[in-house]
């Protein structure tokens, strides 16, 4: 049991760290709601995976990748991109997902259940978070310049659409590995809330990203331990811890580190 808890915490730390890191860009890109809505897409993928008996994390990942390519195409290649459309599409996939998810699994699909995290999930998480950190580290400067000014970035010959696609795919990856811990309703929060709290405290991009990662890690560790001790769902527990950190960060806003 001790080893099992250690394993779960280890996987949780990876999920929290990569979510926090990605969130730091999402908060500055003012895409927080997209990140949140995106996590809902995981549900139909999860449902299909459960029905056909393959790893739910991979099912979620597949659905997310398809959705992300869709959003990216709409926003970069056409002029019909609109937030309303994204909202409609994502709520539709949530509704559909709820209908097709097998009844016994619905609750944990929506809110997460860390007890069900197996060895394969651990392996997928290690690989995915490694990929996330490597890719984002590599594109970080170009991505951030694009956040500051797309025109400035494009005038410096940066392929913004490509960078944005890479970034969104990494968000999809982070959401997919977060689904088992916090569920499809709340994984978006794990990306956004730690970073939003970090923004209140940071004085430079470097400290912003460091604090976002630390917040993500603290939220998952404390959240999982609380869920275990109080025997509650891990999703709400992790997210509420991150919200408490956010509220505390408001008190320190202005005294930036």
């Amino acid at each position: 049991m001790g080893i099992n808890l250690f394993f779960i915490l280890f996987v949780g730390v990876l999920v929290g760290a990569s979510s926090g890191y990605l969130g730091s860009f999402m908060v500055l890109k003012r895409m927080s709601l997209v990140g949140d809505a995106l996590s809902h897409v995981a549900l139909p993928g999860l449902a299909v995976a459960l029905t056909f008996g393959f790893n739910p994390m991979l099912g979620a990942l597949l659905a997310l990748m398809i959705a992300i390519l869709g959003i990216w195409y709409l926003s970069e290649k056409t002029e019909i991109y609109s937030e309303a459309l994204v909202g409609v599409f994502f709520t539709a996939s949530l509704a559909l997902g709820i209908l097709i998810t097998p009844e016994p699994e619905l609750l944990e699909a929506l809110f997460g259940n860390f007890e069900k995290i197996g060895f394969l999930d651990g392996v997928v998480t290690v690989i995915a978070s490694g990929v996330i950190f490597l890719v984002i580290k590599k594109i970080s400067d170009r991505l951030m310049l694009g956040v500051v000014s797309e025109d400035l970035a494009k005038s410096a010959d940066i392929d913004i659409p490509k960078i944005n696609l890479l970034y969104l795919l990494m968000v999809g990856l982070a959401v997919a590995i977060g689904v088992k811990f916090v569920g499809t309703l709340l994984t978006g929060a794990l990306v956004i809330v730690p970073a939003a709290a970090a923004k209140n405290l940071a004085r430079s991009i470097k400290s912003f990203q460091t604090i976002a990662v630390v917040n993500g890690v603290i939220s998952t560790i404390v959240g999982i331990l609380l869920a275990k001790t109080l025997t509650i769902e891990s999703g709400p527990s992790v997210v509420l811890v991150s919200i408490i950190i956010f509220i505390m960060s408001l008190l320190f806003k202005g005294k930036r580190v």
């Binding site: 500055l28 400067d141 170009r142 951030m144 310049l145 500051v148 000014s149 400035l152 410096a156 923004k199 940071a202 004085r203 430079s204 991009i205 470097k206 400290s207 912003f208 930036r256």
Partner: peptide, 18 residues
């Protein structure tokens, strides 16, 4: 630039993009 006042980006970090 449409940059919010509270974005934690320093002059050094901004110029180092280039």
């Amino acid at each position: 630039l449409n940059i919010e006042k509270d974005v934690p980006l320093t002059v050094e970090e901004f110029l180092k993009f280039k």
